[in-house]
Amino acid sequence: MKKKGVGIGSTFYGTGYGNGFPDVSRAKAVLKEDGKVAVHVGATEVGQGSKTIMSQMAAEVMSIPLNDIIFICEDTKNMPDSGTAAASRQTYNTGNAIKLACEDLRKKVIENAFKELKLNSSVGLTLKNGEIYLKTLPSKNISLKELALCLLKNKELPLIGEGSFTAQTIEMDEETGQGAPYWPYTFNVYGVIVEVDTETGLIDIIKAVCAQDVGKAINPEMIEGQMDGGFAMGLGYSIYEDLGLKEGKMKNKNFTNYLIPTALDVPELEKFIIEDPESTGPFGAKGIGEPVMLGVAPAVLNAIYDAVGVRITQVPVTPDRLLRALKEERRE
């Protein structure tokens, strides 16, 4: 018999290394001779999209097109240490460092522009759409490209902005665990409707909904991508992935028998991006890389209970495990 059930899984997640460990990101923003800006940062692009959203942050501060940001994050020879691409910390930590570095460069650009424009002060000068101009007299202007050429001629390139950000984290008391270990906290809620086949033990996800707190979305498309990926990984954790570990040996160590969800196993995910800016985050943003997968497994387990009235306390809920639990329930 096929039985339907609904379940909720809600979670929170503290960003960063935590517990007082120095959590530092560094960044450098460099004005190039063609007016483009190179961002040097040790934040690894592992597929999560850091290169894109951090380029967006830099482009926003420098007020230049996204294509004019050259993002360099591949070589220890030419990038500062920005910590590990983990703990959902890059958007928040390194994002802040990049924002600071670009703000520093922006200030230096304006200072140099007022000299080139032969004004007596930088007051009222702004940088927008690649142009530095006087707000009260826009005809007093110079483009970033022109400025870069002037600086090159005067041997004043490269112009470098620097930024460093250290997250707030406080070591907890050893006996009571009291303290402020992480910041910020990010919230995630999943809801799923499952269909359980009580004869085969197979579980189908009929519908899935995700609400993800992001602080502020730097790129909604990428957040939605993370939600899809997080859901698939969480689903694998809930009902498929099993190493077949016995006496320290993995039986399942390739994709023939270590099953991960395929596109056919994953339903269309209804997504809600919840914005509530975090004042210490870059543009209000928080990291979401890990949070997006946390609520899936509990939602599936609660939905299984709603469908068949049996609490499964162990993941993955393989057909075997589910049928055994149903049998035990009947016996009782």
Binding site: S10, F12, A180, F187, G191, V209, Q212, F272, D276, G284
Partner: peptide, 23 residues
């Protein structure tokens, strides 16, 4: 539980309500 105060950006209830409504 560690005595930390969540002083801002805590939209948990909003997340729950969005999912509840959609389902």
């Amino acid at each position: 539980a560690t005595g930390q105060i969540l002083e801002a950006s805590v939209p948990y209830i909003q997340c729950i309500e969005s999912v509840g409504k959609a389902l």
